[in-house]
Simulated assay, not measured.
Amino acid sequence: MCSEQLWAEVEDPLRRCARIHHAVLERNSIASIANNILASAPPKFTAIGLSLGGIVAIHLAMLAPHRITGIALLSTNARAPRPNQLRAWCESATRLDHGGSAVCEQQRLLEVLTSERSRTADPTLSARVLAMAEHIGTEGLRTQLAAQASRIDYRVALREVTCPSLVLAGEDDALCGVPAMREIAAHLPDSKFETIPGSGHLTPMERPTEVGRVLTRWIAEVANPMPPDSTGTMTSNLLSYSAS
């Protein structure tokens, strides 16, 4: 239930080294989302994804390793859904069937989506998170729930990902905790792991300065620069996934 606003505060520093393309997660399975992205993405690109978007980034690296120059995985999960997760998503879909809304579903998750420290430091944070859910809407949420349910266990596949990878965890993430993120990094052959202090699940909104700094530094290290564009600026491709 996140929109492009998830990345709004980290885009300025990233634009100094990358062209940014936002992918819309509008298919009902991770595989179909990845194939749809590949159909319109640049020939080579770096994939940055948070949560569901991170799972899509992993799938992209499996499907088209020759096109992916790097993956950055933020607050995500490489394991198959647990039974209690599948039940929760079914219950959410049922509430939608009975007149519920994406905003109401996001409201139920607020305390696990962001850290208490972040909400205290930024009184506008919760309202901005709810605004993203309103933008996604009921049908968008239905599609994302179906995509989440299609998740598989990617841990063995991670060992075959040869491109550079960044694994970025929120210190206080209640959904994809530091141990789970360290597990992902341990399975990736060429990985860098970092923790964002004081952040919950939505790191680009909670700690945009720190996340922007880490991503920009990592992209500069791993991305192959492209020829200067018409303004003379060096750019590289970046595809970001705006989804939780």
Rank of each mutant, 00 (worst) to 15 (best):
C2K: 04
S3M: 03
S3D: 15
E4Q: 13
L6V: 07
E11F: 00
P13Q: 01
R15Y: 01
R15D: 05
R19F: 09
V24N: 13
R27Y: 07
I33G: 01
A34G: 04
L38C: 11
A39M: 11
P42L: 09
K44N: 15
F45T: 03
G49T: 11
L50S: 02
S51T: 05
G53L: 09
G53F: 09
I55F: 04
V56R: 11
A57Y: 10
I58F: 11
I58L: 12
I58A: 07
L63S: 06
H66G: 12
A72V: 10
A78W: 01
R79Y: 00
L86V: 14
C90T: 13
E91N: 09
S92H: 01
A93T: 03
L96T: 00
H98F: 10
S101V: 01
A102L: 04
V103N: 08
C104L: 15
E105K: 08
Q107D: 14
R108A: 14
L109G: 02
L110C: 07
L110N: 10
E111C: 04
V112C: 07
T114G: 08
T114R: 10
E116R: 15
R117K: 14
R117Q: 15
R119D: 08
T120R: 13
A121V: 03
A121C: 07
D122R: 12
T124Y: 10
L125M: 08
L130K: 11
L130H: 09
L130S: 08
A133F: 06
G137M: 05
E139T: 15
T143S: 08
L145P: 01
A146S: 14
I152T: 08
R155N: 01
R155G: 00
V156A: 12
A157L: 00
V161M: 05
V167P: 08
V167A: 05
G170A: 12
D173I: 03
D173M: 07
L175A: 03
C176S: 14
C176I: 03
G177A: 11
G177R: 09
A180C: 08
M181W: 12
R182W: 06
R182N: 06
R182M: 10
E183Y: 00
E183R: 00
A185G: 09
A185M: 05
H187M: 02
H187R: 03
P189C: 05
P189S: 05
P189H: 07
K192I: 09
E194V: 05
E194A: 13
E194M: 12
I196H: 03
S199Y: 11
L202I: 12
T203D: 03
P204K: 09
M205H: 02
M205S: 01
E206V: 04
T209Q: 13
G212I: 01
V214N: 02
E221V: 01
V222H: 14
A223D: 13
P228R: 15
D229G: 04
G232R: 12
T233G: 11
T235Q: 14
S236M: 04
N237L: 06
S240G: 09
S240C: 14
Y241N: 14
S242Y: 11
S244D: 15
